[in-house]
């Protein structure tokens, strides 16, 4: 029982450390918010007229179509945060200090994950705010809004653990800041920016079966009332699978990590 209590206390301490990091290094969070906002504006105002017409509507319809994808793009981009912060800890002496102390082993990683979820929450709120300002008009009920945040949380949790593992295995902070970038591509290679039906066959097959598409379809359904079908359950299954696999990978690599 005390082990459990210690784990909670230590994780809280490590979360406090991460929150201090967020305050001391606001430019990282700024970048994680700025990128999706720029893409949102770019796609709505530059491509929005043409793409909106093509999918049957106009710029106003395209804001609605695009926003769920941009929200996922935000969460995918935010994965760079924990990858960088974990890799920084791993390449500096501080990780040895933590590991030579009688603290709950996992608390360092838990602190990074919780800190990243806070960062994700801030980023999603900011991007959602900009989307609403430029004409995003969801029709979600309060329950559906809760579900939207639930799905985003599940996704952020999965991608954060994945990024933590990448941060541990990276041999430098630079590598760690680059490797999660492919995650930001996935919303493009799915139903985030244009419907998958418009893609060539091979790409379309990939787009329809990669994990981000069911997540986007679920968000879109909850926010705008389009059909969700089996996407919800598939999305959560992907999140659970990625979370578990990444958690186990991160834990194994963290424990095995000895010298650098």
């Amino acid at each position: 029982m005390t082990t459990m209590a210690h784990a909670l206390t230590d994780s809280r301490t490590m979360l406090r450390r991460q929150l201090l990091h967020l305050r001391r290094y606001p430019s990282l969070t700024g970048m994680l918010i700025g990128m999706p906002v720029i893409f949102l504006l770019l796609f709505v105002y530059v491509f929005g007229g043409a793409v909106g017409t093509a999918i049957g509507g106009g710029r106003a319809e395209y804001v609605n179509y695009l926003t769920p994808g941009i929200l996922l793009f935000t969460v995918a981009g935010a994965a760079a945060g924990p990858a960088i912060s974990v890799a920084t800890d791993m390449t500096e002496g501080i990780v040895d200090r933590f590991r030579s102390m009688a603290i709950a082993r996992g608390s360092l990683l838990t602190g990074h994950v919780l800190g990243s979820l806070v960062q994700n929450f801030l980023a999603v709120l900011a991007v959602l705010g900009v989307a609403l300002l430029i004409g995003f008009r969801p029709n979600a009920t309060p329950i559906e809004w809760l579900a939207v945040f639930g799905v985003l949380l599940a996704t952020a949790f999965a991608l954060t653990w994945f990024a933590v593992a990448l941060g541990i295995v990276a041999d430098s902070v630079e590598t760690a800041s680059n490797t999660p970038m492919f995650l930001s591509l996935l919303p493009f290679l799915g139903s985030g920016f244009v419907p998958t039906e418009t893609m060539p066959a091979g790409l379309r097959a990939f787009a329809e079966h990669q994990p981000f598409t069911p997540i986007i379809e679920t968000l879109r359904g909850l926010l705008l009332g389009t059909g969700i079908g089996s996407s919800g359950i598939v999305a959560l299954a992907w999140c659970a699978g990625i979370s578990l696999a990444s958690y186990l990978w991160a834990k194994r690599k963290y424990n095995a990590r000895t010298t650098r």
Binding site: L20, H21, R24, Y25, E92, G93, I94, D96, R97, S100
Partner: peptide, 17 residues
Amino acid sequence: RAAIGLTGQFAAVDRLL
């Protein structure tokens, strides 16, 4: 771990704090 303290070769400090 509960009984020892380690000061390694590279300053094990948190530079952002």
